[in-house]
Design a protein around this nucleic acid. Sequence first.
DNA 1: TGGCTTGGTTGCATCAAGCAACTGATCTAC
DNA 2: GTAGATCAGTTGCTTGATGCAACCAAGCCA
Lengths: 159, 159
Amino acid sequence: MLRRDYPGLDCSVAKALEVIGERWSLLIVRAVMHGNRRFGEMQESLGIARNVLSARLQRLVDEDILERRAYQENPPRYEYFLTEKGLDLWPALIALLNWGDRYSPDPDGPRRLIVHKECGGRVDDRGICEACGQVLHARDAIQVPGPGADKTAVVREAV
Amino acid sequence: MLRRDYPGLDCSVAKALEVIGERWSLLIVRAVMHGNRRFGEMQESLGIARNVLSARLQRLVDEDILERRAYQENPPRYEYFLTEKGLDLWPALIALLNWGDRYSPDPDGPRRLIVHKECGGRVDDRGICEACGQVLHARDAIQVPGPGADKTAVVREAV
DNA sequence: TGGCTTGGTTGCATCAAGCAACTGATCTAC
DNA sequence: GTAGATCAGTTGCTTGATGCAACCAAGCCA
């Protein structure tokens, strides 16, 4: 992305995209939701260039979407956590995830399913549990291996 | 964006972003939902470079998100319409729009509101009508001027 | 005849992304 | 105690997508 802003557009979608519309940004948020909190974990799981990951993390912290916490000193090492603002991106991620699943399906079915933590029901594109009808939030859902998963799949937080 | 794909990521969010994650793509979808169907309308309303708009429109047509229909011959002139696949991006756009509104609010309140066409209730970040509770789709909602609107605002389709 | 409208395409300059190598600190193995 | 590994970046270089402006083509308008 040459510029990250959309000058002259007084539109809330454009405002959102100025913050999380850059290449990799939303995937980093998803990776953190998924439990990847450290630089190396994210770099490996995403295959992103290290300088770009560094720049994106800084920006996401500046925008109060991620929070950086030291887990050791000497040498200083940090983990990244989602703020409330970051967690509130969950509906958008779920909508995109379901859209991707619907229109670019895996041959054997989805590799991962997002399910309601309490009742195990599948989560639809609105973040609503198809079993119990509850409107869910980021912390109400987990990711489990789907029909198309390989054996290495592991149960994780949602998204 | 240097490359538009995310090689090695078997993730539905990444698959979605490979299609609509490029700069401008989602804003073009929004512009078409908004009623901007012609090249010039989109170019002016978005302020996007013409070559980039041309490339994005072609890609969105190739991906079956937009459909190009001739509205005259000699010289051939086209309008762009959303397919079902394109309309199904509405929940993602609504989620982003509400997130943008919540965390980068306009000083006088939102300039535009998305409301349920039938009952006039506001649409929340899940695309659910706050008044009647109905789960809405793209064609169930319209956009109306909000408290922060200037006088030139016009009632349009949603998003 | 010349200008206007519409929907692009082409050429060029700039800046972001990808890659690989390097840094700097600490921990571990031998 | 020296070499190597780990972790979290930073730096330098190359490539290529983006923004901008100019141009093109075909009809219409007066």
